[in-house]
Amino acid sequence: MYYPEPISKLVDSFTKLPGIGPKTAVRLAFFVLSMEEDDVLEFGKALVNAKRELTHCSNCGHITDKDPCNICTDPNRDNTLICVVQDPKDVIAMEKMKDFQGRYHVLNGAISPMDGIGPEDINVTSLIERLKDEEVEELILATNPTVEGEATAMYISRLVRPSGIRTTRIAHGLPVGGDLEYADEVTLSKAMEGRRDL
């Protein structure tokens, strides 16, 4: 089907987003065309600003507009507890639960040999450095319950074992194959309560 080039480019841009197929991309493109110009400019500005103004916290790896992030600078957080997650979205999911008062460490990925992603491609080295510098008593591995998430958790637990730091894994109250960001607060809370030693 033929579309003028500006619409084709817009459709192509939308199809690059996760979960957006060709039909949805066409609907979104035509919706954007029906929007007021000010709203479209504001939308475009929000996209550009998010890309330009956000960075990763130099301490924990979470996405932030201030470095270090608000969680790392919060004096009320428990410094003896670090929860390791795969993505910044997982921190947000955990924070919605409102039960966890420790610190986070965001790996920004998971070990996946099939995809060519090894430990050196994710934020593991800085985690090990944090464990040397901070007085951590427990490391909670909250990677997703997928093959990659499990492999990453096992790798980290083996690295940490010699330090004597208690290493736990969140319970599988979460569906296997699922992602933390889609879990509700009750499921996450139960998963945290049922964590176990590795």
Rank of each mutant, 00 (worst) to 15 (best):
Y2I: 05
Y2P: 00
P6R: 04
D12S: 09
S13K: 02
S13R: 06
F14S: 10
F14G: 09
F14A: 13
K23H: 12
T24I: 06
F31A: 11
E36M: 05
E37Y: 15
L41I: 00
G44M: 12
K45V: 07
N49G: 15
A50E: 08
R52E: 09
R52Q: 14
H56G: 10
S58G: 12
N59E: 11
I63S: 13
T64L: 15
D65S: 13
C69K: 13
N70F: 02
R77K: 04
C83N: 12
V91F: 02
A93G: 00
M94P: 05
M94G: 13
K96R: 08
Q101V: 05
R103K: 15
Y104C: 14
G116D: 15
E120Y: 08
V124H: 08
E129L: 07
E135A: 04
V136F: 12
L139R: 05
N144G: 10
T146D: 07
M154H: 06
Y155A: 06
I156V: 04
L159N: 03
L159Y: 12
G164N: 14
I165G: 09
T168W: 02
H172S: 05
G177W: 07
G177T: 02
L180G: 03
D184C: 01
D184G: 00
E185T: 12
T187D: 01
S189Q: 06
A191K: 00
R195I: 02
R195E: 08
L198R: 01
